[in-house]
Design a protein around this nucleic acid. Structure first.
Lengths: 200, 200
DNA sequence: CCAATATACGGAACACGGTTCCGTTTTGCC
DNA sequence: GGCAAAACGGAACCGTGTTCCGTATATTGG
């Protein structure tokens, strides 16, 4: 569903000067988000652009006008879930367990999110320029949260201190690749990685 | 570089009946292997087919005739190194350290191999049908070795026993993705994973 | 309500990479 | 040298991302 009146970064500046987007444009943007979400579920985040367009009943040009890169579309579709994940970090830390336990739980949330979005983990670390924004968004939003949890656990002396949040997130993201294969249990691999973090 | 007279699976049956490949064919196959090796170093294993053809001074048809899929080409180029890695397993185990130490060293070898081949780790876990053979080859060759090391370490009570060789190799392979980025240290991540394997 | 104009739309056209196919060339053999 | 088989080259085809522009539609002022 997402904000019905356009990208939220533009929202602030719109109130003054720029009038407002056309009604059909807003309608199409919403339709596209729904179509993309459905297409992602059905065929993964690397579903052909034309298929999303077909689902939404619009031309491909319309997609590019609203979402210049595939990353913009993916971010728009998953923004709420990423926000939720980010907000869960401090909450878990405040919940009473050890910082290490909070970190483990938070990573679990992240993994759950990733493994249920076919192709997202793959896209996240693609070096393709089109996914630059995607990478940047995830990092911007989640690195601070992860760093906070990491710092807390490190301060408590529970984990090794030579690992940055970027690296941990990247490693976890990598381990989530190929989670669709029943012979590979991404959650277990991440669990082992997190176990390896603890100081003996 | 590489066996000069064609794929080794065909070698056995060739001795009887089938005469021998034409001279130009053998020459081109060798040239292609060299060109591919160079192209892989320069642009990663996902370098365009046409570029490999150009380097070798042959047409694209010639590539497909010798190597029906990209995986066949990659396997041919790296076969020797994979063999060497496979053979190092038993040797490390026999070298005198603990089985766990041998496992860790062997994984190190594997990681060294992967991180120095741009795009190989990515290709290894691509679900693209063209890379099926690549995946299969690596698994066929390395899983038994890894399983042996894993079993030895498990028998010595050094590591958890609920992890299969396929999963470990896959996890390690995944962690090697994006190793080109200076902000991400694949070796360190794998080290942490291996640390997580040990039963405290 | 109508006309004028800005805005947005659709989809054809282009770029690019993998893959196939077939007319031409080369090799091996007599 | 002449012939058949083997191999070659690269044009052509397909699927996908991306751009571009003629057409359609919303909005606004009269």
């Amino acid at each position: 569903m997402a904000d019905i009146d356009g990208g939220s970064t533009a929202a602030a500046s719109r109130r003054e000067s720029t009038p407002r987007k056309r009604a059909d444009a807003r309608r199409n943007e919403a339709t596209l988000l729904d179509a993309a979400a459905a297409a992602f579920v059905a065929s993964g985040v690397d579903v052909p652009v034309r298929e999303i367009a077909a689902r939404a009943g619009v031309g491909v040009g319309t997609i590019y006008r609203h979402f210049p890169t595939r990353a913009d579309l993916i971010v728009a579709v998953y923004r709420h879930q990423v926000e939720a994940c980010a907000e869960a970090g401090p909450a878990l830390l405040a919940a009473g367990g050890t910082p290490y336990a909070a970190l483990a739980q938070w990573i679990d949330l992240f993994v759950d999110f990733l493994v249920t979005k076919h192709g997202l983990a793959e896209a996240l670390q693609s070096d393709n320029a089109a996914f630059q924004t995607l990478h940047a968004y995830f990092l911007d939003r989640l690195v601070p949260v992860c760093a906070h949890l990491l710092d807390a656990a490190a301060a408590a002396g529970e984990i090794r201190t030579d690992l940055s949040a970027v690296e941990l997130l990247r490693g976890v993201g990598n381990l989530c690749i190929g989670a669709a294969d029943p012979r590979y249990d991404a959650r277990r691999m991440v669990e082992i990685l997190i176990a390896g973090l603890s100081v003996s």
